[in-house]
Amino acid sequence: MIEFHLDTRSGVAPYLQIVQQVKQALHLGRLEVGDQLPTVREVIAQITINPNTVFKAYRELEREGLVTSRQGQGTFVQRTLASTSLASQAALRQSLLQWLQSAYEAGLDGESVLALLLSTFQETQKEETA
């Protein structure tokens, strides 16, 4: 079962953090269709959090069609987010390794690689929302 954690210093609203963590689990295949999300009581036991926050997060996930709540039974995953198959992910992973190799050969260290990745990624995000 998925276990949540809360980062109170990130500036990201707690309910969004839960939503993001569920989505990430779906992306990585850690959650599959039919899996049950922890009950609100279980989430409170894991991370001391306001129950309304959990309700809000689950409602948001339900609104996006990712989960469905069944009366008296719990909240279950309805749709997965792994849109690309594992095979194509393997191919992407391979090209990434090759790029990293060339970056190191060009003389970039770990931090520079990350900085380059992050700034390029943020640019693409900006273009998406614009």
Binding site: R41, I44, T48, N50, P51
Partner: peptide, 13 residues
């Protein structure tokens, strides 16, 4: 502190 808040949140639920 964590235990206290946990009891509180349980009751809140």
């Amino acid at each position: 502190r964590r235990d206290f808040l946990r009891t509180l949140m349980d009751a809140q639920l």
